[in-house]
Write a protein that binds this DNA or RNA. Sequence first.
DNA 1: TATTGTTATACTCTATAACTATA
DNA 2: TATAGTTATAGAGTATAACAATA
Lengths: 165, 165
Amino acid sequence: MAQVETDDSKMNRTADQDIGEAVDDAVLRRFLGHHLRRASNFVQSDLARSLKDVDLRMITMSVLTVIVEHRGLRQSQLADALQIERPNLVSILDELEDRKLVERTRVPTDRRAYALTPTAAGEALAAKASQAVRAHEDRVFARLSASERSSLQDLLMKVYPGAEG
Amino acid sequence: MAQVETDDSKMNRTADQDIGEAVDDAVLRRFLGHHLRRASNFVQSDLARSLKDVDLRMITMSVLTVIVEHRGLRQSQLADALQIERPNLVSILDELEDRKLVERTRVPTDRRAYALTPTAAGEALAAKASQAVRAHEDRVFARLSASERSSLQDLLMKVYPGAEG
DNA sequence: TATTGTTATACTCTATAACTATA
DNA sequence: TATAGTTATAGAGTATAACAATA
């Protein structure tokens, strides 16, 4: 595959580069992981932009969404579900609480813990965010047919552990 | 799809959560982008681990690989090819130069620029890294057949712009 | 004036140790 | 002792402005 080169051919290419040849990352593109990363970065960038309309970041959207879906859950459960470290959750919840989207209330049966519940505004914003994400997905996966999207999801779920498949 | 709930049903679920119900991110899993991110993160984590064997990070591996493939290129070309900001390249190249893997030499025809060339050690390490990446890909995509990997690549290349398809 | 490489800086994301209050 | 939430902190990764040398 890789062709053996003499020192001469190498030096010629060096000279060519000086003149201003096109440079690409073709070697890296041989790797499937490269395309996976590129696609993921592209989609995430677009999602981040979309969520700005509802003044949420990806992580705050995820946190708010899970709280809406599992009202009353604790911070440790939330951290487990989203695979984020407990300390990093604190400022996220502070922000959502300051914005009156989420409430922390003491659990009577375990006074160490907080139960997390969305406010009405929080539920409304989660719904708006969900809509924004759906619009974003339609846009960003527009070049894939419904069956291609389904195949892509199946293939991706075969790659990482934890996704049943 | 989403079922309308009464306040009562919500409060019941709140109580259930207190007892310690399973919490998941099922809502988020409805989104294709979620699986794309999860798969990408999983693969990148494994790649980062694999590259530790050759004492490279993902970015230093990419930089070294492109320099080997395009010997004599300039920093600005490299930054363009890898889509990283020029300032962030400096410390990466400092590291590779300190480790005698890459050399910066003045371009005679444009004394502002540096031509980047790999040393023999740099080429050797790039080859080892490439092998490590191939082993990593075989491991991490083990559950996909050759044709599934090919489909996955085709689908991913349809998602992000710049990948011809 | 514009460009190459550089410095300084800042912001996000992520990870860990150690504290407090409860259990 | 162990756990829930918190604080402080540190390390990546990434982005921008501004500078010196050169074109």
